[in-house]
Design a protein around this nucleic acid. Structure first.
Length: 263
DNA sequence: CAGATCACCTGCTTGC
DNA sequence: TGCAAGCAGGTGATCT
């Protein structure tokens, strides 16, 4: 669920509160979210002071006075500040002031501690909000495959997910099955712009709350009311009125306008 | 290497 | 009403 705009919103909602806080006690209850020795993890965190909170793709990085805690929200993960502990509170960080709850019904998220920057982050592609048109063009031309799976591939760009891949393709008027390497210069520029504009707009609206996404304060996003294609199958395209179509691409539901996004 | 298939897990919706 | 199947914002392993 949480893609770049949602993760960015969570980080922004945490940033005013976490730096300077000390973790008094930690507890983890899921062998999926926290694989390996959960007691050791809790022990490593106890007594640590939080230096900063930032986003790297869809990862939340909590820098400590020793080591880094990386949190990936998976599909249904939430980081909640001073919230009651629900059934799915699989991680609890008691702070010197307040408590940080990791809640995740499906347990697809991951929480890991590492001494320095987690190695897996090095495998991710550039930030979609930062990449230049030149770099974007070069990387796109190097790739085979279709546009939609490519946009979901975190080694191409880090942070796009199913909602924003579909929304960016609509904005760029590009078909999800178009061959990435064969796009004209003009279309590449359109896609580059569309990705940035879509993500920025979504961040301004604090992300999309499709079912249960909320930020650390428990507030929902409202970009979902501006979705052009995602979840709108059968409804009229906001530009041309043609019914939005839903197909499956790379095992993922893919929404597009058959008229605005010609093959 | 691209792409399909499956798996991880829970909960909500849909259809019979 | 009840139950099973299908589907969901993500990712990674395995196979062809």
């Amino acid at each position: 669920m949480p893609e770049l705009p949602e993760v960015e919103t969570v980080v922004r909602s945490l940033a005013p509160h976490l730096p300077g806080r000390t973790i008094v006690h930690a507890e983890f209850r899921s062998k999926f979210v926290t694989p390996g020795d959960r007691r050791l993890l809790a022990k490593r965190l106890a007594g640590r002071t939080i230096r900063s909170v930032r986003r790297h793709g869809k990862f939340i990085l909590i820098e400590l006075d020793r080591g880094v805690l990386s949190v990936h929200l998976g599909m249904t993960g939430k980081l909640l500040l001073d919230a009651p502990r629900g059934t799915h509170a699989y991680g609890v960080l008691e702070l010197d002031r307040g408590v940080l709850i990791y809640d995740d019904p499906r347990q697809f998220g991951r929480i890991e501690w590492s001494e320095s920057m987690p190695e897996r982050l090095a495998l991710l592609g550039p930030e979609p909000l930062a990449i230049s048109l030149e770099d974007f063009t070069r990387e796109l031309r190097r790739r085979k495959g279709r546009l939609k799976p490519l946009l979901l591939n975190q080694s191409f760009l880090r942070g796009l997910g199913n909602i924003y891949a579909d929304e960016a393709l609509f904005r760029a008027r590009l078909h999800p099955l178009a061959a990435a390497a064969r796009l004209s210069k003009q279309r590449i520029a359109r896609l580059h712009d569309s990705i940035r504009e879509t993500l920025q707009l979504a961040i301004e609206h604090r992300g999309s709350s499709i079912s249960d996404y909320v930020d650390a304060a428990g507030d929902r996003g409202w970009f979902q009311i501006m979705h052009q294609v995602y979840g709108r199958q059968g409804e009229p395209c906001r530009v041309c009125g043609t019914p939005i179509r839903k197909i499956v691409v790379g095992q993922r539901g893919t929404h597009y306008c058959p008229r605005c996004q010609r093959p």
